[in-house]
Design a protein around this nucleic acid. Structure first.
Lengths: 223, 223
DNA sequence: TAGAATTGACTGACCCTTTAGTCAATGAAA
DNA sequence: TTTCATTGACTAAAGGGTCAGTCAATTCTA
């Protein structure tokens, strides 16, 4: 039974408050950083006053922690999603790579989570650990496994990518960091970038004779 | 004539102060972030009081700006250094790659500069621009040029790396970000990582028949 | 050279704004 | 009428920024 079931408008509002506050906290904390964010700003964004925020969260620090936890939860299904990929290995790799760009570059929430971890990680070390546990490690493990399978069944050549899958996702991270630094001021075409990234991967993964230069699908994604 | 020439101890101390303060400011700002750093902390680190800091810098914000400028200046010679690389193209690439790891991963100052740009870039946009202008762009331009030369003279195969040299340095950036997130808690071997990175590059750059798996020198760097 | 006068780098107490956190009063929903 | 989510005025503490005063280094004078 959901918390909004069979309740009057008062109870519904109350039930919705914590989430509203977490969303507003995300906007403010990611834009200003922890120390520079005022609880009053978060409250104003929700349309209430500071006192209300303290009804739902006992302190600014707790609110920040809860907000980070809230941000991290959608990452939990990363591993399952990746394991569900099907088809020939190169296409699986491409789907995987596009998924990584989707999360790390296109999805603002994940991107800003990265900013907060880098910016505030020194004072909240568990943030980095959770982010790694729930996102980076699953991603890398799944990628490594996929590549080793591909190698085992002869689709891919042996490659250090199998042992160090971070190499596979690093270009996406670079785009994410660029995005964090310049927002939208320096945006070269992402599709071109991904195409080049895939090209680089094929040269490492595919046997020489299969490298045509247009493996997988490097064309724009259409329906 | 240097500012310490022929001066008494009083004048020498005065001349040294701004630099001392900038160094202390770097330590505090990079550890705590702009908003959470107190000018008093910076002063204490130097061994003076807050008032003294305000003798040399008119405000916290100006001090931060000057500190960032001070940090950025050593980056200026990046381009020259890269152009001075010599020898066969694969060795030049390897030297370049190692230089990038040196700066981005091993050099604490450059790494923390990255943290500050990501963390504070939203409120000080010119920081990102300068960092890019003086470091990232020269690095990428030089790399792109080197690869295109290598392709032109037949040492390398045509490759999208020539047009998108960011791909070449992205693994180093990943290590830098990991370092920022975990400090020293998660350090897999850097040499293994670089070796794998180079391996990946050779599979993209070298003709098939030259790819032995141990191009360049993948052994530990010795004298 | 010795002592007096001057300088100026530095201090630390102070001001004032900002902001985390509190709580008695309020008024709309139940 | 009762309940309780919300308010907004309040406190306390923190921290940016100021400045008159201090004393050691330096310069001047005899």
């Amino acid at each position: 039974m959901s918390p909004t079931d069979g309740k009057g408008p008062r109870a519904q509002r109350k039930a919705a408050r914590p989430m509203e506050i977490l969303e507003a906290a995300f906007e403010e904390f990611s834009a200003q950083g922890y120390a520079a964010t005022r609880v009053e700003d978060i409250a104003r964004r929700v349309g209430v006053t500071k006192g209300t925020v303290y009804v739902y969260f006992e302190s600014k620090e707790v609110l920040f922690g809860e907000m980070m936890r809230h941000l991290s939860t959608p990452l939990a299904d990363t591993r399952a999603h990746i394991r569900s990929l099907e088809g020939p290995y190169p296409q699986r790799i491409e789907a995987f790579v596009r998924y990584v760009y989707q999360r790390l570059v296109a999805d603002r929430k994940t991107r800003e989570l990265l900013r907060l971890v880098v910016a505030e990680g020194a004072r909240f070390p568990h943030l980095a650990d959770r982010q790694d546990e729930e996102f980076m490690q699953p991603l890398c493990d799944a990628a490594g496994e996929m590549i080793r399978e591909g190698v085992a069944c002869g689709a891919f050549r042996p490659t250090p990518l199998a042992e160090i899958p971070e190499l596979l996702i690093s270009p996406a991270l670079l785009r994410a960091v660029e995005h964090l630094m310049f927002d939208d001021r320096r945006s070269t075409d992402l599709e071109d970038f991904i195409a080049a990234h895939l090209e680089l991967l094929w040269s490492a993964l595919l046997p020489c004779e299969e490298r045509t230069g247009t493996n997988g699908r490097t064309a724009r994604p259409d329906a």
